[in-house]
Design a protein around this nucleic acid. Structure first.
Lengths: 193, 193
DNA sequence: CGGACTAGCGGACTACTGTCCACTACTTGG
DNA sequence: CCAAGTAGTGGACAGTAGTCCGCTAGTCCG
């Protein structure tokens, strides 16, 4: 039986899903690589129920951090309202880096997610892409970055963010990556002609 | 018992290691996610022996492709001899992209390896870092790229290479990433003053 | 209310990774 | 050549991801 895509769920199913998410947040905060089976057990559901809701660890993590992701995408909109487009893009990359470092286990999930053709299918990932696209469009209109950059290009260019080690001076590493990418993006921008 | 680091191995140990590598090459070519236990079995060694030689899948893959990695690092030296430094760097990134796409499973291994603090400890990875450093040094001397870029920065900047999907038009994706990174690297180069 | 329909459940099961340790057999000194 | 010591073996074992399917119990229609 397939999970219903969006139609009304049975009441118990809805409860189960939420219970899993609640338990997962606690368990994953406690230890990023908590066994999924343990989460299922603590949530009081069987393996089958668990995996029908979250086909793999990445899917779970993306949903668990869904709220924080929301804040991140909101931040993009806010930055666009209050700052120059290129400044907004630059600062958003900083937020993203902080996010990547702060949410233990999320970076691994992102590494898995990016580049798979099913990436955009991941709920919780699509909003991020949308935020990136908004940032890029604003910059294109302002002529602050090269015209041919797509969201995919950008995601690939900042893939390194998900590789940064929390130990070590991640701040400067992230800043250097950000500067490099920004300079690359700015090269060939029509606004500079 | 620890595996001897470099001293003379017992003759049978040497044979085992080579047999594993030979079998692994065949099996991994056949299917990139062949079970390690199956490789051990086909090589006629126990799990213990297998894992003492290759602590995890990534280590095995890195060694299996060791020969090809050698060619890649050789190519860097050759390019440096025959081309302008920035041209060499650019073309080497192309080689790297082709490499990433061609060797199924290698990209996954690299994603795992990069960013771990033990990265340079991986035999078979260190030569790549050395090659990158050589390319960067040549460019620094020629003043063709910004002076502050380290090998780590570069590796982070091209992390996207290991995310590129073999399906889809990886060629143009790689080219766009390469151009973006190259432009980023060139920005602020002293030679441009 | 009650029965039929089926979405959804849950846990047994398979497959794989990686660890551990009692044993085997290569080596070396006498 | 033999014996002692130990490098190295190998497979049993433990733990986890993910699948499968018979059963349970919400839901809905009469």
């Amino acid at each position: 039986m397939e999970l219903r895509i969006d139609g009304p769920q049975r009441s118990d199913a809805q409860r189960n899903r939420e219970r899993i998410l609640k338990v997962a947040l606690v368990e994953l905060s406690h230890s990023a690589d908590a066994p999924l089976s343990a989460i299922a057990k603590k949530a009081g559901v069987g393996q089958g129920t668990f995996y029908r809701n979250f086909p793999n660890r990445e899917a779970l993590i993306l949903e668990v951090y869904g709220h924080e992701v929301q804040q991140l995408t909101d931040a993009a909109a806010e930055l666009l309202r209050t700052k120059a487009p290129d400044q907004a893009l630059c600062e958003w990359m900083d937020s993203l880096a902080r996010f990547a470092v702060a949410k233990v286990g999320l970076a691994d999930a992102m590494r898995q997610t990016i580049g798979t053709s099913t990436a955009s299918a991941q709920p919780g990932y699509a909003p991020v892409v949308a935020a990136i696209e908004a940032l890029l469009v604003a910059n294109h209109e302002a002529g602050t970055i090269r015209p041919d950059v797509t969201a995919d290009d950008f995601i690939l260019a900042i893939a390194g963010i998900w590789q940064i080690d929390v130990n070590g001076d991640w701040q400067s590493q992230a800043a250097r990556l950000r500067d490099l990418v920004m300079d690359g993006l700015r090269t060939g921008a029509p606004g500079r002609d």
